[in-house]
């Protein structure tokens, strides 16, 4: 495969410039667009998508796909709410438990994919059904969280107030969680054996196997990480909404996959980065913000634009990876 380093980073550069371009265009067209408030909201509203996209990046880099993300998020969110509100768990314990459950769910999917040599999209499709049905089994309606710890400590006291603008800008904890997840994933992918194995397996599975890499363990880790990230994204979503909802996040996996692709990760696997995916999430968020600012645009334009962006990026990558 002929691939110059330049071509490899091109999609990432394109995404970064697109983010800048869209932001500048928004700032020029709409008077109050270039404000700290807009940027803050952009981060707060997309924090859970960013965490979900981190997990999706791992799976896609390894050449697989995970369609269960949105359902696992909904399951986590309603599980959290039920544990805290109806069973009197401490929120921190509930969060830890929910994240572990998500990881176990991902691991189980990985095990089935491995053991029976089934396609990932099929098993995670079944996982999407199971987690969604399970969410409704836990609690059939959305459930508000009124525990003081969540409202006061997690959402208020742990917020960061940046001394910018007239009133300062409050960055809630959930944005920090997302940024931490992105940073941790970037470190794992760039500097650890697991990270290199993920790239190797995604780029050329047989080659990786012949080199003696443990493909089985890599694949299992990747699906476990995706489950963990989905659950963490569910936690962030729950903090964001201050409620659990079994019907939430329908189709969110598509947004996450779209963000990963727009961020320059090859859907075939082997090439891409978490940084790119985060930029992809930002770009999706910016498009959504612009559609909202415009006011008279039907919000469904977002989906159409995202569809075309995905198509454009996939076509761009084909051109540069041949």
């Amino acid at each position: 495969m002929k691939r110059t380093p330049h071509a490899r980073h091109l999609p990432l550069l394109v995404t970064a410039s697109l983010v800048l371009l869209v932001f500048i265009a928004g700032a020029l067209v709409y008077p109050r667009f270039a404000s700290f408030g807009v940027v803050r909201n952009l981060m707060v509203d997309n924090a859970f998508l960013a965490v979900a996209a981190v997990g999706a990046t791992f799976v896609i880099l390894s050449g697989a796909i995970d369609l269960s993300i949105g359902s696992v998020m909904a399951f986590t969110s309603i599980l959290l709410a039920t544990l805290i509100e109806q069973h009197g768990w401490h929120p921190l314990a509930a969060i830890a438990f929910a994240v572990i459950v998500g990881g176990a769910f991902g691991l189980a999917q990985g095990l089935i994919i491995q053991a029976f040599e089934l396609p990932a999209f099929l098993v995670t499709l079944a996982g999407m059904f199971i987690a969604r049905g399970g969410a409704f089994l836990v609690h059939p309606q959305s459930l508000g969280i009124k525990h003081p710890f969540v409202a006061d400590v997690l959402n208020e006291r742990l917020s960061l107030v940046l001394p910018v603008g007239p009133h300062g800008v409050t960055i809630p904890l959930l944005v920090d969680i997302a940024l931490l997840a992105i940073a941790a994933a970037a470190v794992v992918l760039s500097f650890t054996r697991l990270g290199r194995n993920v790239y190797a397996v995604g780029d050329h599975e047989q080659g990786a196997m012949l080199m003696g890499l443990n493909i089985r363990a890599t694949r299992l880790s990747v699906f476990t990480i995706s489950g963990l990230c989905s659950a963490l994204a569910g936690v962030v979503f729950t903090l964001y909404q201050q409620s659990g909802d079994p019907a939430a996040c329908k189709g969110l996996e598509l947004d996450a996959i779209a963000a990963v692709v727009i961020g320059g990760t090859l859907l075939r696997g082997g090439i891409g980065s978490v940084l790119g995916s985060s930029l992809g999430v930002l770009l999706l968020g910016l498009i959504q913000t612009i559609v909202t600012f415009q006011g008279n645009l039907n919000s469904w334009w977002t989906k159409i634009v995202v569809g075309f962006l995905v198509l454009a990026f996939v076509a761009l990558q084909r051109r540069f990876t041949r």
């Binding site: 796909i65 039907n298 989906k303 569809g307």
Partner: peptide
């Protein structure tokens, strides 16, 4: 023509298609 994997190729319409439908019905 573009030789995309079928999952990817049809994913595009899966994402954009509901937007198109919303556009036709005006939401």
């Amino acid at each position: 023509r573009l030789r995309l994997q079928p999952i990817v190729a049809t994913l595009v319409l899966m994402v954009a298609g509901r937007g198109v439908a919303q556009l036709i019905t005006d939401g």
